[in-house]
Write a protein that binds this DNA or RNA. Structure first.
Lengths: 342, 342
DNA sequence: TTGTATGCGTTATCAC
DNA sequence: GTGATAACGCATACAA
């Protein structure tokens, strides 16, 4: 199909430089104990011939492909896009490529995708969260494959991870609303199946409201898929109740945007008539009217740290790796005291 | 470093099944002319031994790694996230993996990243837009590597592509504003260096306004980096002018969001006092207050079609591949006639 | 339809 | 420090 151009091989470089193939390989891999003179001769031969090493042969012989795999639920959520973007940029520094696979929160798909990536020969794996099928751990261990999960914070020695606590900020958000005098709270959660982060946030909301004796009744806890339109729907559901909430805790910013925009659409004043909180601190959160009170998830920082840590693990440094990052609350104007005019 | 478990090889499967290695390979690759009986024996042996083929060896021997590379400016822009998400899902169907690399609109970085991916042995390449260094084409051609660019629509036989016209919708947006009676137009553009899409949109805006005799003077054409905050800044710059615009054409939705939110912040009524247009139709565009008039970029459709077309090319089908998709205007409430009360 | 034998382009283990 | 040479694990042309 394509013209079979005569490719320059490592052996050609060796001949051109008048050295052995082993020496060329050593120069290529920056191995120790190589004389400066030899290095120069080889490099000059490489330049002269325009030699480019073959990654596949390299991978077979060295048992390293120079790429890791990342399994993410979706790239449609910009928070993951941001993380993957940082991850890839940082991996580049370590001369490492990135294979991505998405699984739409379907853990069977995740395991299947992992199998495929492992078969490709990836040098390491990045996972999101703590919810995985048993097969994932089994496979990873059996292959002795370096891996790291992120976006959560379990101190599990079998699951090295770099992330943040999802529960505590959720509790703090709930507490913030309680402090402002709200008692009729509602929760808009993403589906928790296969999503420990969503579950942890929901639990945080519940723990705090229960402790205060005003846990939302079932009808004020709605679960919707990820999306602005879904947030709009959730708002409509909640406001149709006999006793609508005075404040809504959302599982993520996108849902909060939906809720907020739906509220504005019907002319509701935020926060006078309704307080709203998010979780993620997406770029537009601070530009909403009013700016959204939320939790700043360190997506970019996670990407960088995961890259560095996984590369370290691949290099054999089996560090502890339970890294807890800060996910601070960001108080803005979407939350406030209920106006007492009624 | 990791326990060297005795891996099961293709040869082991052959022995177990009592056939040759070639036969096992044929079954694995679903080659034609394999008897049902042989297939069953091999598959059963594979199951019994839990054999998993080695991707690196496969790649070296077959000269296909089962993955393509995608070079995107950034994944921080959700429109690219959406495209990559669809692309990856669709590639999966074809049993193809995805390597991604970002280059922050730096064409030198793009070429460098391409070199790295080519060296890995990727089977094909996806590019964004038409702006690339000469080296990109040279490299692609010399290796006879199947590739496809997207997000633009040149009818260049040397550059197979699947995309949409960026200029025409831009013209139509400008015309829409002119029809509404606006004469003091402004443009907020993303940097056009290394970004033919931004340039095409800008040109569309200019062509139409020039034709109507009201091309914006230089001070009403501002260029800012991608981002909501940058849109806010652009708004402030434009509104500080002696003759501020009555309508603003933005190069993408994110900039438009920034402009709109900044306008709301200072209490400006949209569209009564200011009309705003975007480009992309991000999910939140229709949920803004007011909903944003914009252009619906078929990001997901591009992802799917690119996957199918590139796989076809890799399989040797050298189709024409200049596929023009529709990018329709979406008229919403962020544009309207200037209120004539002054 | 199936088996045999060789090649894929490196890396790494030895010697020297 | 440097050079032979044997892996690395599979695909495929060719033969049968």
């Amino acid at each position: 199909m394509s013209k079979e151009v005569q490719r320059t091989l490592l052996g050609d470089v060796a001949r051109e430089a008048g050295v052995s193939t082993a020496s060329v390989s050593r120069v290529l891999n920056e191995a120790p104990h190589v004389s400066e003179r030899l290095r120069e001769r080889v490099n000059s031969a490489i330049d002269r011939l325009g030699y480019v090493p073959d990654g596949t042969a390299r991978a077979l012989a060295s048992r390293r492909i120079g790429a890791i795999g990342a399994l993410v639920p979706t790239l449609d959520n910009p928070i993951f896009g941001a993380m993957i973007d940082s991850l890839e940029q940082r991996l580049k520094r370590h001369d490492c490529r990135l294979l991505i696979a998405t699984y739409r929160y379907d853990l069977d798909d995740e395991l299947q995708a992992l199998r495929t990536l492992v078969q490709q020969g990836i040098d390491g794996v990045v996972l999101i969260g703590h919810d995985h099928l048993q097969g994932v751990q089994t496979l990873l261990q059996r292959r002795g494959l370096p891996f790291l999960s992120c976006w959560h914070a379990e101190d599990d020695p079998d699951w090295p991870n770099i992330g943040f606590d999802n529960t505590l900020p959720a509790r703090n958000l709930a507490n913030h609303l309680l402090q402002l005098g709200h008692r009729r709270l509602a929760i808009v959660s993403a589906p928790t199946a296969g999503n420990d982060r969503a579950r942890a946030r929901l639990e945080g909301f519940l723990q705090e409201t229960e402790a205060a004796g005003c846990a939302p009744p079932p009808e004020r806890i709605v679960t919707v898929e990820y999306g602005i339109a879904e947030g709009v729907l959730a708002f409509e559901t909640l406001m149709g109740l006999d006793a609508p909430p005075t404040a809504i805790l959302c599982g993520n910013d996108t849902l909060a945007f939906g809720v907020m925009l739906a509220a504005q659409r019907v002319g509701m004043r935020i926060p006078d008539e309704l307080s709203i909180t998010g979780f993620d601190d997406l770029p537009q959160a601070r530009f909403m009217t009013p700016p959204l009170t939320t939790v700043a998830v360190p997506a970019n920082e996670i990407g960088k740290q995961v890259a560095d840590a996984l590369i370290a693990r691949i290099s054999g440094e089996m560090l502890p790796h339970h890294q807890l990052l800060d996910a601070p609350l960001v108080f803005r104007e979407s939350t406030g005291q209920l106006s007492t005019k009624d």
